[in-house]
Simulated scan of single mutants.
Amino acid sequence: MPSSPGPLVFISYRRDDAAGYARAIASELSRRWGADRVFIDVDDIGAGQGFAQVIGQAVDTASILLVLIGRRWRGEREGQAPRVQDPGDFVRLEVAAGLQRGMTVIPLLLDGAAMPPGADLPPDIQALSSLQALELGNSRFAADVERLVAVVGERLGSSPVQPGRRGWIVAAAGALGAALLAGGWWARSRSVARPAIDGDWVAELRYAWEPAPRTERFHFTGEGRQLAGTASFLGVPRGLVEGEVDERLVRFATRTAEMGGAEMTHRYQGRLDDDGVLRLMMQTEGGSGPNAPLEFVARRAEAHAPR
């Protein structure tokens, strides 16, 4: 059996600096090129696998290295040198490997973070500071990610798969595909693949501006790829817009009007795991202040109920 292709894109980040952004970017790139072509350690290192070995193999096979740089990317520590100065620091090793291999290395500056000066970096990754960077911000996240998708596609020399489509659909676009689509077969087959998403879900979200977690509730319904229903924000149900399911992938949005008239859009995307847990990332756009991506887990309401 031939081995599966390696990842096209490797996402390098420090967990206490950019974990939320890393998940959001990985989810969007996976939606465009396929999850097997995007490497992020949270998803792609299984139990019992060696962390360094898996990362090394992924870097060796990837074409593009995305380096997510937030305000804590260097890993500052009180009374010690930043973690990036440690020879065994994984972020440093990832960047050094990408530079040494001649990969396309794209720094992503998050929420106004500045590129670290070369003098503040160890010799094996000083070249990072001279590379052209892209900026990603909370208030314009969707537009910034679209720009990133365009850059990644240009560097790969290939267009992304359109959301909701897979390679077999493209292959079926010939005479056979035309006949099947004309007969409505495609729509029926896609409805069969709808995941077990309908019903009531509950999640505990910890918003940055609140001291304690808040319970949010979700109700999903629909047919085929359509996703309708409600998702609460600050305990108030909001109607879903732009809802879509595709195999196990889920994406939808809600809108909230702040006092004073400013409108916020909450964009959710994630997937339904094998154990029935819905892992989601929420990115809030607009409003009176910046909001970092928020990662959380939703469970069936009956499973959440106290026993």
Results as ranks from 00 to 15, higher is better:
L99K: 05
L99S: 06
L99V: 05
L99C: 04
L99R: 07
L99Q: 09
L99T: 03
L99A: 07
Q100T: 14
Q100R: 15
R101M: 11
R101K: 14
R101C: 04
R101Q: 15
R101V: 10
R101H: 12
G102N: 12
G102A: 13
M103H: 06
M103N: 10
M103L: 14
T104F: 10
T104C: 09
T104H: 12
T104Y: 08
T104S: 12
V105P: 02
V105N: 03
V105M: 05
I106T: 09
I106C: 03
I106M: 03
I106W: 06
I106G: 01
P107R: 04
P107A: 09
P107W: 07
P107T: 13
P107I: 05
P107S: 07
P107C: 09
L108I: 13
L108H: 01
L108N: 02
L109D: 04
L109E: 01
L109M: 13
L109A: 08
L109Q: 02
L109C: 05
L110P: 07
D111M: 10
D111F: 01
G112R: 08
G112L: 02
A113Q: 07
A113T: 05
A113Y: 06
A114T: 15
A114H: 14
M115S: 12
M115D: 12
M115Q: 15
M115N: 12
P116C: 10
P116M: 12
P116R: 08
P116A: 10
P116K: 14
P117A: 10
G118M: 10
G118I: 03
G118H: 06
G118K: 04
A119C: 02
A119S: 13
A119D: 11
A119E: 14
D120Q: 13
D120T: 15
D120M: 10
D120H: 08
D120N: 11
L121G: 05
L121V: 06
L121M: 11
P122G: 11
P122N: 14
P122L: 09
P122W: 08
P123S: 14
D124R: 02
D124V: 01
D124M: 03
D124K: 06
I125V: 12
I125K: 00
I125T: 01
I125P: 00
I125F: 03
I125N: 00
Q126C: 01
Q126S: 01
Q126G: 01
Q126P: 03
Q126L: 00
Q126K: 03
Q126V: 00
A127W: 01
A127D: 09
A127Y: 03
A127C: 02
L128V: 06
S129W: 00
S129L: 05
S129A: 15
S129I: 00
S129M: 02
S130V: 13
S130K: 15
S130A: 15
S130I: 11
S130L: 13
S130D: 14
L131T: 07
L131V: 11
L131C: 09
Q132I: 11
Q132M: 13
Q132K: 13
Q132F: 09
Q132A: 11
A133N: 09
A133D: 11
A133F: 10
A133G: 12
L134D: 05
L134M: 06
L134S: 11
L134Q: 11
L134T: 02
E135M: 03
E135I: 07
E135K: 09
